[in-house]
Design a protein around this nucleic acid. Structure first.
Lengths: 296, 296
DNA sequence: TTGTAAGCGTTATCAA
DNA sequence: TTGATAACGCTTACAA
């Protein structure tokens, strides 16, 4: 007879708000918006709503957002932290007593479910692929060690390079923020060398956009002037000429799995179980951006 | 001394939740995620948080989300409706007594602030630009009349075409959903004609991606085989070869202005004033995707 | 089975 | 100015 329950009163009484917080570092990054779609779709079946918070890649804002979400009494939290090593972020998370799902992040001393991307397979395949084409000096552009993606990609890259006995000059590894400005800068720095590398691995979707912009700006041709393997099958990598060889992963699924893990915890179905880890595989997709190095 | 107010109790008491709802039709669309960033940045100064709801382009979901937000007692609503003509959506909005900001939408009988894109200038400039290059048969691919963007773009296109005395064959106007599948389909349909148009205007960021994919798939060259002007300066249009001539607008600002309008209402600074309208201009950016038609 | 009362943490009101 | 008290709308525990 037209009665509508008042969720606020319910929440005040029960201590549950039927809300979930999602803190990301850049909502305009297609990686995060695709993850958000995965979360949102998965949440639709339940009666949870998503709070969104943008940290703009700064740990300070992460902390601010987490505290804000806690005050707001969200029932669970999904996090893509800007800096997983930040002590105050870690403290902040340790004090929380709600379920947390970390997206491709590892935080010491925090009991949390995780959705981890298996960067190893894709990166290793990419390096072997380039080596098989005859490349010897392969450069890496990726994010810092302060979050898992950058670290895991770098480690996988170094492991694969060592395995194939490739040289590992420190100046061939460009590490910086996960944005297109750094991608463009890094490529420029690389190609301005007296003897530039013949191949580049771009480890990050926004980095890749920057790399592609710089390649365009300099009039470089792929794969004649440079071979490229890049992260993520996006509009940019699919529509570039030539289409870019990519390390692909099911980004949507990262969000969907994260929401599923969280919903499981919230339904008490897995209250005191040990943290669960879901792994998202990566695969190499070969298209037209890599070929034999010039003069071979 | 360590005291933290409890926002739920505050809300129950005051009837204000310090939250704002944003309902969009596709979070993976760069248009909407950029708008979301604008809103989020603007909200940061205030103490409002954003609830996000995804309608996947379906009016039913819009209604569901609006009702959900109302139950949740959001203080204000920012909407990119899938279908502004849907009677139940209109009823639903008329019953709401919270401030609403419509993003490039017009809903009959609903008092709401609006951020409207001035499609007219950009579209007119694009049509004149193509005509000046010698094009006579220009096709339009855009969204349906059930929301302002599609309608305004079509009307601007028809106006400009009439002004220049261009033919307006109905089969040269392809109207459908704002997604890449339709963009690709529409381009294919156009080019499969016995005598295809020599130029295309793609009115929508996702449509444009579909159009570009189809152009790639068919091995068409721009501007030799076809001239293209497309909506929105994105990674896709910037990185395509050649770079695509676009109708550009400050998408981020749509979100920022919307949040500003809403915050103004919420602060009672403009309680009973008549609805405010902010207009976002469009401009034509000429790059390499348009040239004289073949054989001229 | 049905009903009543207390309390969640605020804010607003009114009396002192 | 200060301090006690009711009420926001629900849930839950306990009594009838």
């Amino acid at each position: 007879l037209g009665y509508e329950p008042h969720p606020l009163a319910q929440s005040l009484r029960t201590g549950q708000t039927q809300t979930v917080g999602y803190v990301i570092s850049d909502i305009a990054n297609v990686l995060f918006s695709t993850i958000a779609r995965g979360i949102d779709d998965e949440l639709r079946g339940s009666d949870y709503t998503m709070f969104l918070g943008n940290s703009r890649g700064e740990a300070e804002h992460d902390i601010q957002m987490i505290k804000h979400m806690r005050r707001r009494r969200v029932d669970g939290l999904i996090l893509s932290l800007a800096d997983e090593t930040h002590p105050e972020v870690q403290n902040c998370l340790r004090e929380l007593d709600i379920p947390i799902v970390l997206l491709d992040r590892e935080v010491d001393g925090v009991r949390a479910d995780r959705v981890l991307v298996d960067h190893h397979d894709g990166v290793r395949a990419a390096v072997r692929h380039l080596r098989a084409l005859g490349h010897y000096r392969i450069a890496l552009i990726t994010g810092t060690d302060s979050a898992r993606p950058g670290r895991a990609i770098r480690e996988a890259f170094e492991g694969a390079a060592a395995e194939l006995e490739l040289p590992l000059a420190p100046e061939d590894r460009l590490i910086g923020p996960f944005d297109d400005a750094f991608g463009a800068l890094a490529l420029a720095r690389l190609m301005d060398r007296r003897s530039p590398p013949t191949a580049v691995l771009a480890g990050g979707a926004r980095l890749t956009v920057g790399v592609l912009r710089a390649i365009r700006a300099r009039g470089l041709r792929l794969p004649e002037d440079l071979s490229l393997v890049a992260y993520d099958d996006t509009d940019a990598t699919a529509l570039f000429t030539p289409a870019v060889n990519v390390i692909a992963r099911n980004v949507y699924d990262i969000g969907a799995q994260a929401a599923r893990l969280l919903l499981g915890r919230l339904a008490q179905r897995s209250a005191n179980q040990r943290p669960r880890v879901v792994t998202i595989p990566t695969t190499l997709v070969v298209r037209g951006s890599a070929g034999p190095p010039r003069g071979s």
